[in-house]
């Protein structure tokens, strides 16, 4: 069987997905990056290899997410694209009429506007991290609510508490204040979801033409409280797709398939890369006052790639 592998390495999670020629998802893997993208990718590859039926051939591979370049080098990606495109490609395949995509991940949130299957506009959170997964995680912990139960708890709220969502700092102090005055946890949790949705729509979604069908994906889409809060604010149903948390990886797999149509042959180094000794190291180049931090990737002790320099003199490897 011919398949395509997509790898999305974000700040919080690393996702992998394998699709077949018909773009059906065969297997997927979701694991935490934990600040170690190389190890996460290697571990993910091993899991995927174990899950795949024997005789499966990977015909193409693509990487996305904030560690996409590093990952691309490790696995030998056929194409390396920004996660915005990967998310859009996956969503518009699964829901062909999609017009708006909300994607809320660990460290950033995005809105993608799609018309007739093509991305026409997008935005990412600028200077504000309110409404991202990390903030919800942190608040759940503070309230003593396991993050998995956060959404269900929010749905039980009878009268959601008003919480300032403009800024995480204010949101937190507002929440503490409301707790102290006797508001119950489920109302606070629901209020927090509403505040984050308002913040998202006002900051990330500012000025964007938000139309149904709207797809909500990324790790935070697991939170039913957030989904409901979006629906209340927008007045229509928001779709959370089956594979909401690995959509970036699915999109990347689709991009790999697209690329192979043109290039024919994959650069994939095979699942063996999960066994290879990869290391990164960095140094400060003192060639000029820019003092660029140059990153080197080493395979079995040998430098295979470098980046981070503004002038480009380190990018070219001397053979």
């Amino acid at each position: 069987m011919d398949t395509y592998l997509g790898i999305d390495v974000g700040s919080i999670s690393t996702n992998l997905a394998v699709i077949n020629e018909e773009r059906k998802v065969l297997v997927w893997e979701y694991l935490l990056t934990g600040g170690k993208p190389i190890e996460a990718v290697q571990k993910g590859l091993k899991e995927i290899e174990n899950k795949l039926p024997s005789g499966t051939e990977i015909k193409g591979v693509s990487s996305t997410g904030s560690a996409r370049h590093l990952t691309g080098i490790l696995v030998g990606a056929d194409t390396v694209k920004s996660e915005i495109i990967a998310h859009a490609v996956a969503a518009s395949h699964l829901i062909p009429e999609v017009k708006t995509i909300f994607e809320i991940g660990g460290q950033d949130s995005k809105i993608i506007i799609v018309r007739d299957g093509v991305v026409v506009d997008f935005a990412m959170n600028t200077i504000c991290a309110a409404g991202t997964g990390s903030f919800l995680d942190h608040q759940a912990q503070r309230l003593g609510v396991p993050i998995e139960e956060f959404g269900d708890l929010a749905l039980q709220a009878k009268a959601p508490t008003r919480i300032a969502g403009r800024c995480t700092v204010f949101a937190e102090s507002d929440m503490i204040h409301k707790q102290q005055t006797g508001h119950v946890t489920e109302n606070i949790v629901a209020g927090l979801c509403q505040a984050l949705v308002r913040n998202y729509l006002n900051n990330v979604g500012k000025g964007k033409e938000i139309l149904p069908p709207t797809v909500f994906q990324g790790g935070v889409a697991a939170n039913k409280g957030m989904k409901t809060a979006f629906e209340e604010e927008l007045g229509y149903e928001v779709i959370v797709p089956e594979y909401y948390h690995v959509m970036g990886a699915i999109g990347a797999a689709m991009l790999a398939q697209e690329t192979i149509v043109e290039t024919k042959k994959t650069k994939f180094k095979g699942f063996e890369v999960s066994e290879v000794d990869y290391k990164t190291r960095s140094f400060e180049c003192t060639g000029c006052p820019n003092l660029c931090e140059v990153i080197e990737v080493l395979m079995n002790g040998e430098v295979i790639s470098r980046w981070g320099d503004r002038c480009g003199k380190w990018e070219v490897l001397e053979k």
Partner: peptide
């Protein structure tokens, strides 16, 4: 900025 520029350019190409 890289993510935004990558996506911006890719968006144009796909359009």
């Amino acid at each position: 900025i890289d993510t935004r520029l990558d996506a911006f350019v890719e968006m144009i190409k796909r359009r």
